[in-house]
Design a protein around this nucleic acid. Sequence first.
DNA 1: GTGGCAGAACGAG
DNA 2: CTCGTTATGCCAC
Length: 302
Amino acid sequence: MPELPEVEVVRAGLAEHVAGRTIAAVEVLHPRAVRRHEPGPADFAARLGGMRIDSVRRRGKYLWLEFATGVDDTDDAAHAAHAAHAALLAHLGMSGQMLVQPASAPDEKHLRVRLRFADDGTELRFVDQRTFGGFALSELLEVEGEALPRTIAHIARDPMDPAFSATHAARALRSKRTELKRALLDQTLVSGVGNIYADEALWRSKLHWARPTEKLTAAQADAVLAAATEVMAEALIAGGTSFDPLYVNVNGQSGYFDRALNAYGRVGEPCRRCGAPIRRDEFMNRSSFSCPRCQPTPRRRR
DNA sequence: GTGGCAGAACGAG
DNA sequence: CTCGTTATGCCAC
């Protein structure tokens, strides 16, 4: 469920189901799922044992678990003190799911990592068909007064962040010399926006994906960011966007924002604003959906 | 059958 | 900065 609203649905589900629980054992069923953890799967599993989950955080499309600083008395003190400064960073990639399941439930076909808890209740499973996602332990750093895993220190604040500055983000967009949609997808300018919500934000603000960022007016940059913020907030209320069982929350339930999409995936269908058939363009080896009338192709693309 | 396409991000050139 | 790669499955042709 990979864009901000879907990841936030997962974060909230994790906060509800795993916060406060102590990890008892970690099983890595596919090493690729922890490839970003340099010391390897065995180290990954060993370091998580005994850790008590304090909170579940998110920036953009990344999630992480922070751990209580208390040392579990069953653990080696030095190891626990070291591990307390690390977070369990997760990215869902294209097809990752976090599922909270009874231990008795049969393993999913693409089960990659299992976290068992000391309370013997439900377990947390990372299921990922394409294994573009995965976990890593990442040291927490202080960045602008907030603890952030080192690995994602380059990721910009997302529009749901209380400290997000639309002015700052608009300036960042306009300072690039690229196409508008590329800039929207650049997680170092504004995070959380992916292919669906970029197309929806562009449709709402009536801007074409190939508009050169350096020629945007401040009002246009503000408008597209406001549209992105708005559409993601609406999607979050709907539980995220899902067309198929791949995108589900920790209970396996789908969101229903797909019904509210105006551009994404609607090639050939009438624009809900003007009736013109939605077009599909190839863009960065993926698709871009837009209204040919509401979002005219700019004279000068980049 | 098979080619095209899928919500992402990293790293090579 | 842009492109290709990573990996698996599904759907339309």
